[in-house]
């Protein structure tokens, strides 16, 4: 009976949000020190945020998706426009194989826009930040590198009619190409922009339907069929899925390395990203690893990378069931 059961208010006590703002590093550390470690958002170390995918909500796009990953919201639109083969300044060789045709011509044009007021760190009125440029480039690299889009889907062929009986059978030739513009607008940004953007790109591409286009020899132009039943889906070769991990470490130049503790956080949000100095992005597709991108730090070793790859494979299974 000696001790007072009610917790006496301490002399200096702040609500959680104040601690999180004042000392983000120690705040995160205090959470991770618990056993088992729980992140400030209530997630476990390996837990991804809830995702939600909505498709086909934009009128003027051939394919579109809205992806929510926790508090990060992204809109991706796919719009097809026509590039006439005659307009290409330096046409590719006839003999060249189709493989890098898309990249040579630049038929996929992804752009990420962060200056939409999605977070106070990215106010509009400035040219795209380094982050936005590097994200656009990463999406572009992954789109071309993993050969998702079938080049034949983007070619508009034309076979000249036979005029003379003696002529050889006419050879179909490519008169024009579809160019796909992928515009990725962040509505709200709370960490992990690349995973959200990529998920939106995949969802939008999988729902993209292009109208049937044919070459009109008299008008020297491409004409599309407005009938809804002539719209066709793209045939996508693969469905890569990315997962990002951040590493929080108490390593400090003033301390012994052996004293440092570290935690690998799956799918970090902004508050976690800000205090983590090491990140790892893994891209997988089914059974293949398409890429591992590790930025900074010296905490993650071979085992941790393998662990992350395993988690990404599990993530791929989960995501491929919800993708449209």
């Amino acid at each position: 009976m000696a001790a007072d059961p009610s917790p006496a208010p301490t002399s200096l006590s702040f609500p959680r949000s104040t601690f999180a703002k004042l000392t983000p590093g120690p705040f995160l550390h205090a959470h991770l020190k618990q056993n088992p470690p729980i992140r400030p958002s209530g997630r476990t170390l390996t837990q991804f945020r809830e995702q939600q995918i909505t498709t086909g909500s934009l009128t003027h796009s051939h394919g579109s998706a809205v992806v929510r990953l926790g508090d990060t919201t992204v809109v991706c639109s796919v719009q097809g426009e026509i590039l006439k083969a005659a307009d290409i300044p330096s046409p590719p060789d006839e003999s060249a194989d189709n493989e890098d045709l898309l990249e040579t011509l630049g038929l996929l044009v992804p752009n990420i826009e962060l200056s939409t007021g999605c977070s106070p760190a990215h106010l509009p009125g400035n040219p795209p930040s380094t982050l936005a440029q590097s994200l656009s480039w990463k999406v572009r690299t992954l789109l071309y590198g993993s050969e998702i889009v079938n080049p034949e889907d983007l070619q508009i062929m034309f076979t000249a009619p036979k005029i003379d009986e003696e002529d050889d059978a006419p050879v179909p030739e490519v008169k024009a190409y579809w160019t796909l513009y992928l515009d990725i607008m962040f509505i709200s940004l709370d960490g992990n922009p690349f995973d959200a953007a990529w998920l939106a790109v995949m969802a939008a591409l999988r729902t993209t339907r292009l109208p049937r286009a044919s070459w009109d020899a008299d008008r020297e132009a491409v004409v599309c069929s407005p009938a809804l039943e002539h719209y066709a889906h793209l045939t996508l070769h693969t469905t890569p899925v990315t997962a990002t991990f951040a590493v929080f470490s108490t390593a400090n130049p003033l301390k012994q390395r052996s004293e440092a503790e570290s935690w690998v956080l799956t799918d970090p949000d902004t508050s976690e990203e800000e205090v983590c100095r090491e990140a790892l992005t893994v891209t997988v597709d089914g059974k293949r690893v398409l890429g591992i991108d590790k930025a900074g730090g010296r905490v993650i070793g071979m085992e941790a990378v393998e662990e992350c790859v395993k988690l990404t494979f599990a993530r791929w299974k989960e995501v491929s069931t919800i993708l449209p």
């Binding site: 590039l83 300044p89 630049g106 572009r140």
Partner: peptide, 8 residues
């Protein structure tokens, strides 16, 4: 600073 449309 952005990825542009094909040259044609």
């Amino acid at each position: 600073r952005r990825l542009n449309a094909p040259a044609g």
